[in-house]
Amino acid sequence: MATSLLPWSDKALALLCRMNNFHLPGSSLVRCRRFVIEGQQVGWVPPVVASKLTRFPEVFTSSGSGEAGAVALCPALDSYRKRSEAVNTVLQQLREEDTFSCLRGWRDEVTLIGAMVGTHDGTEKVCARARARAPHRSLLKRRSFVRLFACLFVLQKYEVMPRFCDQSLMCMERAATSLFGVKRYGVHVNGYRQEEDGTVTMWLSRRSRTKQTYPGTLDNLVAGGLAAGTSLQETLIKECEEEACIPACIAETACPVGTVSYTYEDEDGVFPESQFVFDLKLPLEFRPQIGDGEVQDFYLWPLDQVKEVLVSEDFKPNSAMVVLDFLIRHSYVHPDAEPYYQEFVTGLHKSL
Rank of each mutant, 00 (worst) to 15 (best):
T3R: 08
K11F: 00
A12K: 02
A14S: 09
A14C: 02
L15A: 04
C17F: 03
M19N: 04
F22H: 08
H23G: 14
P25Y: 02
P25E: 06
R33D: 07
V42C: 08
W44V: 10
V45T: 14
V48H: 11
V48E: 13
P57A: 00
P57T: 11
S62L: 13
G66R: 08
E67S: 06
A68F: 12
D78S: 14
Y80G: 04
R81Q: 13
S84P: 05
T89Q: 13
R95S: 11
E97F: 07
D98S: 12
C102V: 05
W106Y: 12
I113E: 04
G114H: 04
M116Y: 15
G118N: 06
G122H: 02
R129C: 11
R131K: 15
A134S: 09
A134Q: 06
L139S: 06
L140D: 12
R142F: 11
V146H: 14
F153H: 12
L155Q: 15
V160Q: 01
V160L: 01
M161C: 10
D166T: 03
L169I: 03
E173C: 08
R174Q: 12
T177N: 09
S178I: 00
S178A: 04
K183I: 15
R184T: 13
G186S: 15
N190Y: 00
T201Q: 10
W203R: 03
Y214F: 09
Y214P: 00
P215W: 00
P215R: 01
G216C: 04
N220F: 01
V222K: 01
V222T: 09
V222M: 03
A223F: 13
A228D: 14
L232I: 15
T235A: 13
I246V: 07
P247N: 00
C249K: 11
C249M: 06
P256E: 10
G258V: 03
T259P: 04
D266G: 05
D268R: 10
E273I: 11
F278L: 07
L280W: 03
L282W: 13
L282V: 03
Q289V: 10
Q289T: 08
Q289R: 14
I290G: 14
I290P: 01
D297H: 07
F298N: 05
K307A: 09
V311P: 01
V311N: 00
S312N: 01
E313I: 05
E313T: 06
M321N: 06
M321W: 02
V322Y: 02
V322A: 04
L324C: 11
D325I: 00
E338W: 13
P339M: 07
Y341K: 12
Q342F: 12
E343I: 02
V345R: 05
G347W: 00
G347R: 01
L348D: 03
H349G: 04
L352M: 14
